[in-house]
Nucleic acid binder design. Structure first.
Lengths: 324, 324
DNA sequence: CTGAAAGCGCTTACAG
DNA sequence: CTGAAAGCGCTTACAG
């Protein structure tokens, strides 16, 4: 029996006699034989590995997307390489995607809220690696995301509907700092809703944030100490909203009676914290991205302009209350 | 110039003329040349990849360990393969480690709270892959962990010291369900402290749990509805403690005045929730495991009985209060 | 349906 | 310090 026949039998190709295949399979099992991935890759040009690039591997959103992608691609026989681009102690600057990470290593890549640079796109183009983005779009590739503006709109209209007119925002990101679209879209929608309702926007009630709970805690503490403070805060993410609620609690400000807080995400802990929020299906986005990428690994072209927008919805909980 | 010389120059081996090396490096940069990992692996037998096996890739503890391992091994030129062993919808049964995941793919592996089976150990032995475990020990391999008994002891003695005598426990795992050592050690230490202080242990105040917030929420709700209820709960993990606090809040039971709650972990959100807890350094454990594994990848033997026990300490916050 | 052969792109002794 | 050659273990046309 030749190595060619064994190779075909093991990979389930046709043109192999059933009896032959069974003998091969039996022998492979007895000998614990598994084809060498390196040798297969070298010969075939395919690695069976999908890379997932995240800016922070240890945060809920990214860990959840990563895990759901891993589950889905594993079912098709692919392994997942983690590309955690976090740069120690630096919030703005992430590690770049390099040839070392990508070249001949990956059959495809999913970027999760990564603002991919022109140089990186050139690299990925040169390597010819199929790519799907989640959240922030990579130009010329399919994207899976929610409608960030609509999400912020839902949250903002919720507190407006409760009669609030003194409304602040937490989670604006200075536009030059990053190429991420999510923070900008959410903040912009917030301002639009206010202006539609002719509610004045106080610039001192808009807090920049590096999008962490700790940072939101610090900034919200400063804001809530002022004599002039809002009665409601719209917060760009649930994690930041947790920081805001903590700040209020420490200052003796009652949520929701003295201050309404609404987030975006529906983080698994938002229920515990009784946080009103706008739910997005994070697992679903990971699975959708994998489902988009998988056919591309087999050479199927995908519409580069494809935008798969996943649904969102308002979850009213106890952190929001009518204005007095 | 031969391929051998190029190979040596690129990998920084000695016995290469400096001028030659510089020419090679310049040419490689100009051509965007990167050595094919598959070809290198096939020829050298090394893959430059470390596998990290976790039972749930989307939970804080595992995502944090994973991310810190990735950071540390990346600094040495290694990539991380994610082995997420979660089996959809099944809490007890995880996916097994298989040849497909391991054979000729990985230079080493770190298991994070995985109760590795005998068959899996035999496989890993046969493949000769160096292994380091975090949390639950893999027999015959180094382990990085905290002293779980000491952690539970600290938490329990804290509420005992506050004068509580009606004390319950959340997070016992039926011993046959899993080979994990953490839940067993923590519960055992809890019972010991009680008996040392001659505090009776009510079996109805001990809650089994699958170690999730939701499950703890459900079970704690049932417990706290009883007329006879504890004044303090020691909880095996912070995430479960969040569920317990939520249950109390929903029932109108005030934490800490009607009920003290203490967890173990110091989860990033524990500060927000004002949860008293026992802190462990999760990032530190990941880094330590990587530091143990890295030399093994270069052939260094490590003491198979090595136990690196990381420090813990009590963090008193607002969820615990003296008994009335 | 099966086999012989080329080739994937490196690394590693070995010789010089 | 450098090069020629073998070899790592597969997959893929191609021939039969």
């Amino acid at each position: 029996m030749s190595v060619a026949t064994v190779s075909r039998a093991l990979r389930g190709l046709d043109r192999v006699n059933e009896a032959t295949r069974e003998r091969v399979l039996a022998a492979a099992a007895a000998l614990h034989y598994v084809a060498s991935p390196s040798a297969s890759s070298l010969a075939s040009g395919r690695t069976g590995v999908v890379g997932v690039a995240v800016p922070f591997g240890d945060r809920w959103f990214f860990a959840t997307v990563l895990s759901s992608i891993a589950r889905r691609v594993r079912a098709q026989g692919y392994q997942v390489m983690l590309l955690d681009l976090e740069q120690q102690g630096q919030h703005e600057d992430r590690l770049p995607l390099t040839s070392d990470m990508l070249a001949k290593r990956l059959d495809g890549i999913i970027t999760v809220n990564i603002a991919v640079t022109g140089a990186e796109i050139a690299l990925i183009d040169r390597l010819g690696i199929p790519l799907v983005s989640v959240g922030t779009r990579v130009p010329g590739r399919p994207v899976v995301r929610i409608d960030d503006a609509a999400a912020a709109r839902l949250a903002t209209e919720h507190v407006v509907g409760l009669g609030h007119t003194k409304i602040g925002y937490v989670g604006r990101v200075p536009p030059q700092a990053t190429g991420l679209t999510t923070p900008a879209h959410r903040f912009e929608a917030f301002t639009q809703v206010l202006s539609e309702h002719r509610i004045p926007l106080r610039s001192t009630w808009v807090l920049d944030s590096d999008w962490t709970m700790d940072d939101a805690f610090r900034d919200a503490t400063a804001l809530l100490r002022r004599t002039q403070r809002p009665t409601a805060l719209v917060v760009g993410s649930d994690e930041m909203a947790f920081g805001v609620m903590n700040a209020a609690r420490r200052l003796g400000i009652q949520v929701p009676h003295d201050l309404s807080v609404v987030g975006i995400d529906d983080h698994p802990f938002s229920d515990v914290l009784d946080l009103s929020t706008v739910r997005q299906d994070v697992v679903g986005q990971g699975l959708a991205a994998a489902d988009l990428l998988l056919p591309m690994l087999r050479g199927r072209r995908q519409d580069p302009a494809l935008e798969q927008v996943e649904p969102i919805r308002l979850i009213e909980r106890g952190s929001t209350y009518p204005a007095v």
